[in-house]
Design a protein around this nucleic acid. Structure first.
Length: 288
DNA sequence: ACCCAGGGTCGTC
DNA sequence: GACGACCCTGGG
């Protein structure tokens, strides 16, 4: 671990609140001074924005520039993507204007899988709490500037956890799902490294769906928010169902609308960028 | 105190 | 494909 600093200027699409509070990540918190600090795979990262300058302070196990470029997906041109999506639909344009500073992160696959299994029928404060509890009990302690941080446990660390211990950490009925999925990944029944070799999104999705606790919604979140990074998916939760029905489908009872119907409308409207469209719509609807 | 809903999945019919 | 069950917690 090494303390490092890195700064970029005039980065398009980069607002701290939009990135860290749009629901894609659970281990970033705002500090009193307005900066955000997060615990990622490679260590601790602090981000502050001063006008057009974004400054990253890190305590990391690898080169900060390399980590930041990958994690924040800085190679991708969001200006073009937002323009393309804005032209497709007037409602989408409005939500893009609202969440214009969003970037979709490349989060560690293993951590993303477990985090979104925990997210099932749960609320964000509690999800964050549970992940923090798991990290405190099974992850490594890192001390930086006299403050303690707990890394998300590695696969073999979490594989030591029993169902009962997980239940004590507040997982509720998700304890068994996290336990079983961890065992399957730990003994390489499903090898996460090999998932990166799969090019076809649907095939990849099928393989994720084999994990206990991973259904269609969680699988799509993993594909979108992890470093598998697919935009041709459309996670449907209560908020997205709500906004898609209100804007496009207009069924009297939103619960009568099938997932397939929503997915078909989404692909028809937004095409291969539907995952990104989903995130703008989700963020806009949840905050308004 | 009580009720409801939350970034759903799973088993059953 | 349609139901209900499922842990727990914050907010009304």
């Amino acid at each position: 671990m090494e303390e490092q600093i890195y700064a970029i200027e005039n980065q398009e699409s980069f607002k701290l609140k939009d990135i860290f509070e749009c629901g894609q990540c659970f281990r970033w918190n705002q500090n009193i001074d307005g900066t955000y600090t997060g615990i990622i795979k490679n260590g601790i990262l602090n981000v502050e924005k001063v006008q057009n300058r974004i400054v990253f302070h890190g305590f990391l196990d690898d080169d900060i520039k390399k980590i930041v470029n990958k994690y924040f997906d800085l190679e991708r041109n969001y200006t073009n993507i937002k323009l393309e999506l804005s032209n497709k639909d007037i409602y989408l344009k409005q939500s893009i204007d609202y969440g214009s500073g969003i970037r979709i992160l490349n989060q560690d696959l293993w951590e993303t899988i477990i985090s979104f299994i925990i997210s099932a029928n749960n609320n964000i404060p509690r999800i964050k709490n549970i992940i923090e509890n798991i990290s405190k009990k099974y992850g490594n302690l890192v001390i930086w500037k006299e403050k303690s941080y707990y890394m998300f446990p590695k696969i073999e660390q979490l594989s030591k956890a029993s169902v009962q211990e997980l239940r004590q950490l507040g997982l509720g009925f998700r304890d068994k799902r996290v336990f079983e999925t961890t065992q399957i990944i730990a003994n390489k029944e499903i090898n996460l490294e090999k998932l990166y070799l799969e090019n076809d999104t649907l095939n990849l999705r099928e393989r994720l769906l084999k994990l206990p606790g991973v259904g269609s919604k969680v699988a799509d979140c993993i594909l979108l928010f992890s470093d598998l990074k697919r935009f041709d998916v459309f996670p449907i939760d209560v908020w997205v169902r709500r906004v898609m029905n209100e804007l496009y489908i207009k069924n009297e009872n939103e619960n009568k609308v099938s997932k397939k119907q929503i997915m078909d409308v989404a692909y028809e409207k937004f095409g291969d960028l539907e995952g990104l469209a989903q995130q703008y719509l989700f963020y806009w609807k949840r905050e308004n």
